[in-house]
């Protein structure tokens, strides 16, 4: 497919027939999507849907096995280094540097992007404020709570002032309060203009944060749209359960499309 929109400057990420196999297992089965500058785009799906595989290809740390994927106009397979210079990544499992203290994590990470010494110091201090971790600047990583670790990981992903921020299940494993706090941070980031891509298996998260999203299952995209449009087109505004009538949500969309719940 030779699409002229490939060169649209508002398209930050474009996937065409993107696929990933691990040996005989197909994790991502030829998907197409476009992510626009400044939006928050979500990948919603149950365990094993292929969210992380898709994210890792967008991060240019794992090459696609079929199709093409361009991030910021660059081909991830051939120009991975240039892609990684301009994006930020928050992986599904924390990989903060446990040999380093909190502030050092930011300083050292900034050095991998080639920031000057003074810029590294400035960024580290700004991001400690952003992540509400000034009081923990000299703490060791294992002394942080789960929510603090996540905030530090997100702060670390911002050291290079990325144009796109990729968040793989940013709030999984956090308690409701820590999750709310993190959502607040992510909304602040979105308002600052950074393009955000996140994967999640919480419909509430997708509904609150995403402008547009796709629902994935078994490596395929089932549907795409704004959270509201998806709900309205697939299930209508309300659903009747045996005991009540309540507003319909993305969970119902997923149920409608697959015949099973998201956590199944």
């Amino acid at each position: 497919m030779n699409d002229p929109n490939m060169n649209d400057p508002n398209v930050v990420i474009a996937a065409e027939s993107l696929g990933k196999s691990y040996g005989a297992l197909t994790a991502v089965a030829g998907i197409n999507f476009r992510i626009h500058r400044g939006e928050c785009f979500g990948f919603l799906g149950p365990n094993g849907a292929g969210k992380t595989s898709t994210m890792r290809m967008m991060q240019a740390v794992m090459a696609p096995t079929s199709g093409t994927l361009r991030v910021l106009g660059l081909d991830v397979a051939r120009e991975g280094k240039a892609v990684r210079q301009r994006i930020g990544v928050c992986p599904q499992t924390d990989n903060l540097d446990v040999d380093l203290r909190v502030r050092e994590n930011l300083l050292v990470y900034a050095s991998y992007y080639g920031l000057s010494r003074s810029e590294r110091e400035r960024r580290a201090d700004e991001l400690l404020v952003f992540a509400d971790l000034e009081a923990k600047a000299n703490a060791r990583v294992p002394e942080l709570s789960g929510g603090m670790k996540r905030r530090l990981t997100i702060a670390r992903a911002l050291v290079n002032r990325p144009e796109v921020l990729l968040l793989d299940e940013p709030t999984t494993g956090l308690d409701p309060q820590a999750r709310q706090q993190l959502w607040q941070k992510l909304r602040e980031l979105k308002e600052s203009g950074v393009t955000m891509v996140l994967s999640t298996h919480y419909m509430e998260e997708a509904e609150r944060l995403c402008d547009r999203l796709v629902i994935m299952d078994h490596g395929k995209i089932l549907t795409e749209g704004t959270p509201r449009a998806l709900v309205e087109s697939h299930v209508g505004r309300e659903v009747a359960t045996p005991s009540q009538v309540r507003p319909a949500g993305l969970e119902d969309v997923f149920l409608h499309l697959t015949g099973r719940g998201l956590d199944a």
């Binding site: 740390v61 280094k81 210079q85 990544v89 992986p91 499992t93 540097d97 991998y112």
Partner: peptide
């Protein structure tokens, strides 16, 4: 995971 974190950078 130190290497994984590094390899997500340039």
């Amino acid at each position: 995971g130190v290497w994984d974190a590094i390899l997500a950078t340039p």
